[in-house]
Design a protein around this nucleic acid. Structure first.
Lengths: 195, 195
DNA sequence: ACAACTATAGAACGCTTGTTCTATATTGCG
DNA sequence: CGCAATATAGAACAAGCGTTCTATAGTTGT
């Protein structure tokens, strides 16, 4: 039994190359990558990859990867049970960058200190994605300056004034009398274990 | 005052192109991108970008982006105050994919249902990154099959047996008598607002 | 067994790429 | 002003690219 080249194997090799080198390999490089001695063989396989919806070629004939480089398969609900490897292949692969960040140019990451939003499930040490410039709506979590210190709070408009409330009974709500500095709206929370 | 081309502006345009087209632009395409009529002008600016550490060229002369495409600046602690735009430029730009996912091939995303880990700050509707195959340590959060249903639990070894505990007093701890199916270890939690 | 298909090799080719050279406006500075 | 530095244009060029063609083993199906 001779070992055969498979589409999946080739896809993985190309993906690895892309990850390592920051660009797609040329046909010549793919000759080494696949262990063949002719560019026409590479073309043969590339056409298969294109037909299989794994790669595409743009107007210039350049190879473009169709899936994000380091995405994760999204496998639905926990209760639906543990995904079988076969199922997993069919799921959408999602890049966390694209999924979480709407406006990359006006967003940034901030590490949370304090427990003012503990009942919202935002703990000390968590990271939040802050989006600048967005108009906060009622119930949004914002980063705001309170008593000269920046903290996270729920945002609520009450008539003409603004109320900032913590998700923690230990912190009293704050009614803005003078001006109020809102740094941005929280668009996502991230907690990483295994730091 | 005539508007001038700046490195930062060019970098942004190239970045946009890369995001949209999945590859770096050719010199000819950059002529349009920059609004110039000669490839030598493009070369002129590309050399500046390379000198400025924004791009690099590999052995084949191909342009490689040095920063991740859609990363976010990490700007430290909330209490340190709100970052000034000037500061922000200097921070590390982090790709969430690279930051959160250690082993892309053996990880996947799962949507949480139920409130068994509510005191750990994991709420219904959150997404967790599950890493298969990793050996769980005491205190790790794992996805496990309990009474034919998959849920999140703390993992703890107690002598020879294993105890699964919820982060919610409503759920009693479970001592594994027979076999125990652990689907994987939770390596990160993600909550997205503005769905 | 023989045809049909799959997989590989090698060579030839046109075309676009990135590079380099010369020439010329435009801007900055003392 | 006048000189140097900066920024743009256009043309020429070799190299490498992806493509295509022909030929030939190896594998599969009936």
């Amino acid at each position: 039994m001779k070992e055969r080249r498979t589409l999946k194997d080739i896809e993985r090799r190309i993906s690895d190359y892309l990850r390592k080198n920051g660009r797609m390999p040329t046909y010549s490089e793919m000759m080494e990558l696949l262990g063949v001695r002719s560019k026409s063989v590479v073309d043969f396989w590339v056409k298969k990859l294109v037909a299989g919806g794994i790669l595409r070629k743009d107007a210039h004939g350049f190879l473009i990867p169709l899936r994000p480089l380091s995405g994760l398969p999204m496998v639905g609900d926990i209760r639906a049970g543990f995904p079988s490897p076969a199922e997993e292949e069919l799921r959408d692969i999602i890049s966390l960058d694209e999924f979480l960040v709407g406006r990359p140019d006006s967003s940034f990451l901030l590490k949370v200190s304090g427990d003012s939003m503990i009942n919202e499930g935002i703990k000390q040490g968590d990271l939040v994605i802050v989006e600048k410039g967005r108009e906060p709506k009622n119930g949004d979590i914002v980063i705001a300056e309170v008593d000269g210190e920046w903290t996270l709070k729920y945002f609520r408009r009450e008539g003409k004034s603004v109320v900032l409330e913590a998700a923690n009974p230990d912190y009293p709500p704050i009614r803005a009398k003078t001006e109020l500095r809102i740094g941005g709206v929280i668009s996502a929370v991230i907690r990483k274990y295994y730091l």
